[in-house]
Computed example of a mutant assay.
Amino acid sequence: MATHKTWHQRHTEALSFGSRLADSVAKGMGSWKFIILQTVLVLLWMGLNLVGFIYHWDAYPFILLNLVFSTQAAYAAPIIMMSQNRQSERDRIQAQADYQTNIEAKREIEALTLVLNRLEVEKLDRIIEMLDKMDKNAAESK
């Protein structure tokens, strides 16, 4: 039994490992879970460095933390842009598929309109025939 795959299924199957990885990273970084986790880690980092009596691995103004954020941003931005580019491509493919569906639907509607018009003309022709017969019968009976 052959299964018909949607454009979305075909597109998903065609993604490379890197594309799937970039999409999952972008999805993860764009979530509340990530924002909350990162906020907790930053507060923990700052708290431990402010109150740590013995060892400060990143004393105020937290230059190492700033470097970590810069590195994260340097990698996150292109990964998110790759994912957005793929989303744009998916949107373009979906728009093209929708356009093709609309064209096919238009053709079907036009064909149905022609059939309905033909049936309407045939009905009108029959009615006219019946009226003509009734006129002839009425004329003959006089």
Rank of each mutant, 00 (worst) to 15 (best):
T3C: 12
F62G: 02
F17M: 03
W45L: 04
Q38M: 15
F62W: 08
R107E: 13
R126A: 14
D91G: 00
S19E: 09
S83P: 00
S31C: 02
S70V: 05
E108R: 15
A59V: 05
H11I: 04
V40M: 04
E122K: 11
N85Y: 07
A95Q: 10
N49W: 00
A22R: 01
K123G: 12
W57A: 01
L112T: 06
I109W: 07
N137A: 12
Y75E: 00
Q9C: 11
M130F: 09
L37R: 00
R107F: 04
A76R: 02
A138S: 09
R92M: 14
L112F: 08
A73F: 14
N85Q: 10
S24Y: 03
T3Q: 11
M46A: 14
A26D: 02
L44T: 15
M46Q: 12
A59W: 07
M1Q: 04
P78L: 08
M29A: 11
G28V: 04
K136L: 05
D91R: 02
Q96Y: 06
A26C: 01
W7C: 05
M134S: 11
Y60L: 10
G52W: 00
E13Q: 12
S31I: 00
K136I: 11
R118H: 12
N85V: 03
N102S: 12
S16V: 03
D58T: 00
S24N: 04
E120W: 09
G28A: 07
L41R: 01
K106T: 07
R90P: 01
I63Y: 11
G28E: 03
T3R: 13
V68S: 01
D125K: 10
Q72N: 13
W32T: 00
A97C: 15
L43T: 14
L112K: 11
N49H: 01
N49R: 00
L50S: 02
S16Q: 04
W32A: 00
E129A: 08
D98Y: 06
A73Q: 12
D23A: 08
A76S: 13
L119N: 14
D98W: 07
R92D: 14
F69L: 14
L124C: 02
N117S: 06
Q96P: 02
K133D: 12
L65D: 04
T101F: 08
F62D: 05
Y99L: 15
Q96L: 09
I80A: 09
N117T: 10
Q87F: 00
R126D: 14
E108W: 09
A95H: 07
M46S: 06
F69Q: 13
F17H: 11
L119Y: 10
I128C: 07
I127D: 12
A77N: 05
P61F: 04
E110W: 08
Y99V: 07
M81P: 02
E89V: 07
T6W: 05
V25Y: 06
I103H: 05
Q9W: 07
S141Q: 03
K142V: 13
M29E: 08
M1V: 03
V42Y: 01
L131R: 15
V51M: 06
S141Y: 01
S88Y: 05
Q72W: 15
L15D: 00
A73W: 05
K106R: 15
E108N: 12
I54C: 04
R107N: 04
L124K: 14
M46I: 14
D98H: 10
Y60F: 14
L15C: 01
M134W: 10
I79L: 15
V121R: 12
Q94M: 05
Q72A: 15
L44Q: 06
F53V: 07
